[in-house]
Computed example of a mutant assay.
Amino acid sequence: MTIDYTEFFSTEAKLRKASVMKMPVQEDGISLFTGLPHPDCFPIKGLSIDYLTPDSKFTKQSTLSIKDPEGQSGQGNVYEALQYMNSQGTSFFRKWCKQHIIDFHEPNYNNWDFLVEAGATQSTDAILRTFCDPGDLVLTDNFTYPCFVESCKPLRVEIVPVDVDSDGIDPKQMDEILSELTKKPKFYYAVPVGHNPLVA
């Protein structure tokens, strides 16, 4: 089942439109929209990486060599990694991530997708900007990720802390807070696993 979240979008998110970089190009045309450097501008055609192997419990070293096909300008993983890329990441990395999720996390529904981000702070900033306007409320653990708090401040999103212990949130206090709030919070930001300092 697909859920339509657009009713929860912030003003900023509602103002965003599809990128002009996605404008169609005629079959024989050359797009100048994206400003992609010509493949011949990249002097790197291959990479070699030494790494410690997981199957040896990270005690033995192996070498991975990647080389783009010769005579095929603008083809291959090295070229794609060096070139301006889709905001969703390189195609080969997305393929690996998707297979990893299937193999190790086994989603129990089919209509799922994922985003590749630079880290938790970029992710929380994107979520806050998508769903929150200045003055909106978000609930969070009273011990929470400091960069989440840091992301809320410049966006003028108000944080309402909720007590937590090693079993999770305090439901009694959550009920009291929700009863007393004059406006509905946008969401609850929680650290569900590996919570420091609550979990050793």
Rank of each mutant, 00 (worst) to 15 (best):
Y79A: 00
S31G: 12
C41L: 15
D55G: 07
Y79H: 12
A120K: 05
S91F: 01
D50P: 02
G71Y: 09
H38D: 05
P37W: 14
M21I: 11
E176L: 11
K67Q: 12
L198A: 07
K184W: 04
Q75F: 13
D113A: 09
D103Y: 05
P37R: 15
T144D: 06
C152E: 01
G194R: 13
T2Y: 11
F9P: 00
A81H: 04
Q26G: 09
N142L: 12
D28V: 02
D113V: 03
D68P: 00
I169C: 03
F33T: 11
D141T: 04
K98R: 14
S151A: 15
L198C: 06
Q61W: 11
E180F: 09
Q72S: 10
V164Q: 02
L52V: 09
G35M: 15
Y145S: 03
V157G: 00
L155D: 01
P54K: 07
A120L: 05
G46C: 08
P146S: 14
F92R: 03
Q72T: 06
R129Y: 04
H195S: 11
V78S: 02
D113G: 06
C152A: 13
F187L: 09
K17A: 12
D175R: 14
P154Q: 05
T140Y: 04
F92I: 04
A118V: 10
E117S: 02
T59I: 05
I127F: 07
R156V: 04
P37A: 15
S151C: 10
M21A: 15
K67S: 13
M23P: 01
F33E: 10
I44W: 02
S56R: 11
E27G: 02
M23C: 12
D50L: 09
T130C: 09
Y188C: 14
S62H: 09
V193A: 13
F93N: 01
F92C: 03
K22I: 08
D50G: 08
R94S: 01
I127R: 02
D165V: 05
K67N: 07
K17M: 13
E70L: 14
I44G: 01
M85P: 01
G89C: 03
K60C: 08
L47H: 02
D68L: 00
L47G: 01
I3T: 15
Q26E: 07
I3R: 12
L178V: 06
V25F: 03
R16I: 14
D103F: 05
D170C: 04
T63A: 10
G29D: 11
